[in-house]
């Protein structure tokens, strides 16, 4: 039995402790917004937040995050209204959309620790999430929009 705190809810799972968090989320908890892309932490499609930090769920044994707060795309906001999600909609970022959960959660973590990232900061933080459709340019724009949006919200 492994206890997880996923999107604010305590969940107990009867699961092999070495199972990657990715498959606990997808197969046991039906949270399919977190994607399988490579299985070896190279593509970032499985990115979730563990205590606010981006983590590759495909190589994170579920036992290693027992008791820690895990945020998936489904838990980022109730109605898709997080500043980063709004920016993603405003810039019409997704194409096929498969990598976008990982992109969005990585951008959320970036803006949490660095509210005004430079291009270099964006490159460094986001290069671990691959997009085969080439939405990178719009991702950059959306991150800037979200940063400006958050800055404006804090000023007011």
């Amino acid at each position: 039995m492994v206890s997880l705190i996923v999107n604010g809810e305590s969940r107990k799972l009867d699961i092999e402790p070495s199972t990657p968090l990715l498959w606990a989320l997808r197969d046991a908890l039906a949270l399919t917004g977190t994607k399988y892309g490579c299985g070896i932490a190279l593509c970032g499609a499985c990115t979730v937040l563990v205590e606010g930090q981006p983590a590759r769920a495909c190589v994170t044994p579920v036992s290693s995050v027992a008791g820690k707060r895990i945020t998936t795309i489904e838990g980022l906001s109730r109605t898709g209204g997080h500043a980063v999600q709004r920016a993603w909609v405003a810039e019409d970022v997704p194409q096929c959309g498969f990598c976008q959960s990982g992109q969005i959660l990585s951008a959320v973590a970036l803006l949490e620790r660095n509210p005004d990232p430079t291009d270099a900061d964006i490159n460094a933080a986001m290069s671990v999430v691959l997009c085969r459709c080439g939405t990178y340019q719009r991702i950059r724009r959306a991150i800037r929009v979200a940063a400006a949006d958050k800055a404006a919200a804090e000023r007011s």
Binding site: A30, G33, K35, W88, V89, D92, F98, I104
Partner: peptide, 21 residues
């Protein structure tokens, strides 16, 4: 015009083949 599928592709609700249950 904004894409009709963008909202579902930013909140995890878009169902890809991998997500079928």
């Amino acid at each position: 015009l904004p894409r009709l599928d963008t909202p579902a592709k930013t909140d995890g609700s878009a169902v890809f083949g991998q997500d079928v249950r």
